[in-house]
């Protein structure tokens, strides 16, 4: 089995990622990363009464980029947006039983993508 220093949980999320895909007309959309660096993540959310009722992601990147995206959607689903905004990169990594040191920075952008999606939702809501 592959071993680039990934935990079993990272590999499990890589092999069976949760919530992959697109939400048409999402209430919030966030995209972070840069293809030049090798990681791009986007998150789509559906929000009802400030609760994230549905969430999907798409990711271009390495094993940890895919696993962290999958994990952050799992953590955020069903949460109030204020709670979801408190989810940090560190939370995602520890829920995955850790990430290799060199992956902590570059491939752990999933929480940022979630925050962007929530900000997008909030600004759309204000415009209404």
């Amino acid at each position: 089995m592959a071993n680039v220093g990934y935990s079993k949980k990272v590999m499990e999320h890589f092999m069976h990622p949760r919530n992959v895909g697109v939400i048409e007309n999402p209430d919030g959309y966030g995209k972070v990363g840069n293809p030049v660096c090798g990681d791009v993540m986007e998150i789509f959310i559906t929000v009802k009464d400030d609760i994230i009722t549905d969430i999907k992601f798409r990711t271009f990147g390495c094993g940890s980029a895919i696993a962290t995206s999958s994990m952050v959607t799992e953590i955020a689903k069903g949460k109030h947006i204020d709670e979801a905004l408190k989810i940090t990169r560190g939370d995602v990594a520890s829920e995955l039983d850790g990430l290799p040191a060199q992956k902590m920075h570059c491939s752990n952008l999933a929480a940022d993508a979630l925050h962007e999606a929530i900000k997008d939702y909030k600004s759309k809501k204000q415009q209404k």
């Binding site: 990147g61 390495c62 980029a65």
Partner: peptide, 10 residues
């Protein structure tokens, strides 16, 4: 195109 090598390897 459009995918990343470490993911390919894994």
């Amino acid at each position: 195109s459009y995918i990343e090598g470490e993911s390919i390897l894994l």
